[in-house]
């Protein structure tokens, strides 16, 4: 189990390769990468994430423990960046390893759903009209609630 919370950029491809190499022989690996979005209708210049690292590490480690026992994961990693990011940069990378694909998919989805509502990160969006704090979404609470 690995949790990393940092302002440093990471390379999702290199992280995935290292994760796969360490999990030799397991049948299924799922990786999810969240990337800073920007679209013509909703252009974003930068996304600045604030973090409470001590709590983030505790929360992410506890969600990995839950996912591991619930889905029988063989390994799981969560990497989350904070600080100032620009469109196209990876924010979050979740990797799960299991004997079969269902557990690996479910474990990754569970980790992402928990992370959205329970890990102490706060997004601030900078667009052409200024900077504002992103509001928490009810659908993220609903996505987490379906695991309860």
């Amino acid at each position: 189990m690995v949790v990393r919370v940092s302002t440093a950029p990471f390379d999702p491809g290199a992280e995935t390769n290292a994760f796969l190499a360490a999990g030799r022989g397991a049948g299924a690996a799922v990786t999810f990468t969240g990337v800073v979005r920007s679209s013509p209708d909703d252009p974003i210049i930068a996304l600045t994430l604030e973090c409470y690292p001590e709590l983030a590490i505790n929360q992410l480690a506890s969600s990995i423990d839950q996912a591991t026992s619930r889905f029988g994961l063989l390994a799981a990693t969560v990497i989350h960046r904070y600080g100032r990011l620009t469109p196209g940069e990876p924010i979050v990378h979740v990797m799960t390893l299991a004997p079969h694909r269902e557990a690996a998919f479910k474990g990754a989805e569970f980790l992402m759903d928990y992370l959205k509502t329970d890990a102490p990160f706060w997004k601030q969006e900078t667009g052409p009209d200024g900077t504002h704090w992103v509001e928490a979404k009810a659908e993220d609470d609903a996505a987490k609630a379906r695991w309860e």
Binding site: Y52, L55, H80, P120, W133, E135
Partner: peptide, 26 residues
């Protein structure tokens, strides 16, 4: 003390209490 809690949780003897808006990571 670096554990997420409800508003009903005790604070007696706490070293650090953090207060913040709903989280928006991921």
């Amino acid at each position: 003390d670096e554990k997420l809690v409800a508003h009903t949780a005790p604070v007696a003897g706490a070293r650090v209490v953090a207060l913040f808006p709903p989280m928006t990571g991921g």
